[in-house]
Write a protein that binds this DNA or RNA. Structure first.
Lengths: 139, 139
DNA sequence: TGATATCATATTAGAAAAGTAGGATATAAA
DNA sequence: TTTATATCCTACTTTTCTAATATGATATCA
């Protein structure tokens, strides 16, 4: 439960790599793949999403690669998570009320809604820089 | 992301129903099914797990059904969640360190570990009674 | 021109979740 | 004692999602 997807874990690792090894230029997926042990093809999928969400930019062709658009301080974990996970809909039952006429769903739904806010809060308060600072750089 | 499984959502609804409509006796899955709009067969799967985790007891035969073993105040949400979701392993990569020699995984792993604790805390501090009190009974 | 990138689309493989099927067993009411 | 109504048990199907791969087009610099 509360499972974090491989895509998000890999994505976060790739972004920390980009932050700490990218400097001002770009980093190729080949390099990230080599150093993080993640399939280059899979990284392509991930970075397609990150680019779409305007977290990274890309340079094509030889010597190309990816770079962060914003500073790590300005990139929130929630932003990264939504970029890679997509839907935030914890509660689809909100739309299909038809089946819940006589049920206690409404109350429980509110509960899950609060739970989601709680989780969201954690993610909103953390930037990529925070994560690197607190967890990654303590070598 | 952070998706709550249908099994857990249904299970929680069924338990709130049991708490508020059960009284001192048992409630049949047929009744819960009818009032909550959940397949009786699916409820069987759920209650098999709840019984296994000693959250509910059962009475077989006619006029039988399920009842809570403990008081709602003594049943924690985390207990319910683990009963229905099973494994709590957010981070399987801890066991398979082989692939992560040269990576930044270690730092990121600590981060996810903290995240898990944060989520867990929320669940540990809530009882079934709390949920009913706060969300369900506000008619 | 060639090497090295991203980009685009599509497919596959596998696991997990959601839900179903059919019958065995127990029990109280009729 | 029969019958209706429960849980119990094992297994199956169906669907959905994730993870990962395949193939080739396109761009760009040395």
């Amino acid at each position: 439960m509360f499972q974090i997807s491989t895509r998000l874990r890999y994505g976060l690792r790739a972004l920390t790599y980009l932050s700490t090894n990218g400097g001002s230029g770009t980093v190729s997926l080949h390099e990230i793949s080599k150093n993080e042990g993640i399939s280059r093809k899979y990284l392509e999928n991930i970075f397609k999403l990150l680019k779409k969400s305007k977290i990274t930019r890309s340079v094509r062709g030889r010597e190309g690669g990816y770079a962060l658009i914003k500073k790590p301080e300005e990139i929130g974990l929630y932003e990264i998570a939504t970029a890679l996970e997509g839907k935030v809909s914890l509660l689809e039952c909100i739309d299909e009320k038809g089946l819940c006429e006589n049920s206690s769903e409404c109350g429980v739904r509110d509960f899950w809604s609060d739970y989601q806010d709680y989780v969201k809060k954690y993610m909103l308060n953390l930037s990529l820089a925070d994560i690197i600072e607190k967890y990654y750089k303590k070598i």
